[in-house]
Each structure stands twice: as structure tokens, then as C-alpha cells.
């Protein structure tokens, strides 16, 4: 189909779809006129029952912890998929030497960018750890903190050389983080099954709301997810960087 025909068809279908979409959205309660039930229930009981002040995390790792288990394994599986799709194919080879990768510094990495990245690395790691462990108290949690943590080693790549990043975060460590985090979250659920009788039921002391060690298993689940997310993102980043820097297509290929 020519590009033109494709656009004409999209114009027709998109117009029809747009009308239905707008009609559907118009049927929603007006913005700000909240009609739901669950939100108010959770807001009412969250702090008392879960001793967590960030109810988004309480929902994520407790009320709907089982969904999060699925979500976490979606991330795990898709990173597995990325590794599988980008695996070394027949006819591909590592670059004759890793010299090129070693010499490769990020295109346009000026001295200022490098200096800034070096400053950013410890700050990113500290912020990442902070966001992960304070998940039950303030906005944040395992998913958000994990991404910030993964940005730390990436800043090493920005600051200097690709292989330096591999020294800071070797593939095996990234993969272990991914796997241990995924398993750790499932173990938190199993802990509930063993000690409290129900999968993902809280089995740790609840503590006082607002304290770092409170809200029962939430900090534990948050840390496990943070480990998994940072590992998963780093594995995916490394795979893509490998494509650009280490693996080449075919002998004499591009």
C-alpha cells in the first residue's frame, strides 16, 4: 500500500475512531468529580491498617501485591526477550578487539559533561537508595528508585568509557540483581504464606507510621523490586550498548 493510500485510510478510520473515543470519554464523570469507591476506602484505612504514609506504595506492594508480582515478571521476561533478540547471531563476531569499544567515548563527551557525570554518579546512587527505602513513607518505591539506581552506572558510560561501565556494573552483577530481586519479591509473598497463612499477607511488625522501619513487609518488597528493576534496566541498556559498540554484523559488515 502506498504511503498516500495509507494516510487516506488512516484519515477515515482515525476520524471515525476519534468520534467514538471522544463520545466515550465524554461519558466519564467530569474531571474532579470523583465517583469511585476504592480510592476513598483505601485513603480511609491505609494509614491505620498498613502503617504506611505513601498509599500508592501500600497499594502496590500490599493491597495488590499479587498484581505487582505479575508486573515484575513482565519486566523480567521482557528483558529476557531483549537479551534473546539481541543475542549474538551466526556470522556475527565480537569486534576483532575490544580496542574500539575501549577507545570509544560517548560522542561529544566534553570535559564538562564528564565532570558533571562524575558528580552525578554518587548523587544518583544516593537518591536511588533513598527513594527505594522510603517507598512506604514518601513518593517513590522500588520501581522508581530502581530506575534512578540504574542511571548511576549509565552516568559512568556518559562520563567516560563503555568498558569502565562494565567494570562498575559487570553483566553478571546486573543479571544477578535482576534475578535476585525478582526472586526476592516472590519470597516476600511466600513469607506471608508461611508465617501468616496467606500469600503476600504481612508477616513483619507494622511499627509506627512515618518511621523508616515501619509498614511491615513494604520496605522489604520495595528493596527487592528496586534491585530487580535496576538490574533489568542495566541488562537492557548493556544489550543495546553492546549492539552499538561491541557486536558487529557479519565479517566485513557495516
Amino acid at each position: 500500500m502506498s504511503r498516500r493510500a495509507r494516510l487516506v485510510m488512516f484519515g477515515l478510520a482515525g476520524a471515525g475512531f476519534g468520534v467514538v473515543l471522544v463520545l466515550g470519554l465524554a461519558g466519564l464523570p467530569a474531571f474532579g468529580d470523583y465517583k469511585g469507591v476504592y480510592g476513598n476506602v483505601i485513603n480511609g484505612i491505609g494509614v491505620t491498617e498498613r502503617r504506611a504514609t505513601d498509599l500508592v506504595t501500600a497499594l502496590n506492594f500490599d493491597f495488590r501485591a499479587f498484581d505487582t508480582l505479575g508486573e515484575e515478571f513482565i519486566l523480567f521476561t521482557s528483558v529476557l526477550g531483549v537479551v534473546l533478540i539481541l543475542r549474538q547471531m551466526r556470522g556475527e563476531q565480537d569486534r576483532p578487539s575490544q580496542r574500539e569499544a575501549e577507545e570509544h567515548s560517548f560522542a561529544g563527551a566534553s570535559a564538562a559533561l564528564r565532570a558533571l557525570s562524575l558528580v552525578l554518579i554518587p548523587m544518583l546512587l544516593a537518591l536511588g537508595v533513598y527513594v527505594v527505602v522510603h517507598g512506604a513513607l514518601t513518593p517513590g518505591g522500588g520501581f522508581q528508585g530502581g530506575v534512578i539506581l540504574a542511571a548511576g552506572p549509565l552516568a559512568v558510560f556518559l562520563a567516560g568509557r563503555y568498558l569502565r561501565m562494565k567494570t562498575v556494573a559487570p553483566t553478571i552483577v546486573e543479571e544477578l540483581g535482576d534475578a535476585i530481586g525478582a526472586a526476592g519479591y516472590a519470597l516476600v509473598g511466600l513469607g506471608g504464606l508461611v508465617f501468616a497463612g496467606v500469600f503476600f499477607k504481612n508477616f513483619l511488625p507494622l511499627g509506627i507510621p512515618g518511621h523508616l522501619l515501619s509498614a511491615g513487609q513494604l520496605p522489604l518488597a520495595s528493596i527487592a523490586v528496586g534491585l530487580e528493576v535496576s538490574g533489568a534496566f542495566l541488562v537492557a541498556f548493556s544489550e543495546f550498548l553492546d549492539q552499538a559498540l561491541v557486536v558487529r554484523s557479519g565479517p566485513g559488515g557495516s
Binding site: F31, G32, D33, Y34, G36, Y38, G39, N40, I42, N43, G46, V47, T48, T53, D54, L55, V56, A58, L59, L137, T138, P139, P209, G210
Partner: peptide
């Protein structure tokens, strides 16, 4: 999930009875 005048569902520094938006 937004309700008019609702705050973020983070009860770290607002009273527990405050009106907050839907965290779900």
C-alpha cells in the same frame, strides 16, 4: 481518579483525614 481539591495520597505531612485523590 482526581477529585476536586484532593491532595496527593501521601499522608506523611497532611492529616490522615484530608481529602486525597484516588491512589488506585
Amino acid at each position: 481518579g482526581y477529585s476536586q481539591g484532593g491532595q496527593a495520597p501521601i499522608f506523611a505531612d497532611i492529616p490522615q483525614t484530608s481529602k486525597a485523590v484516588d491512589p488506585v
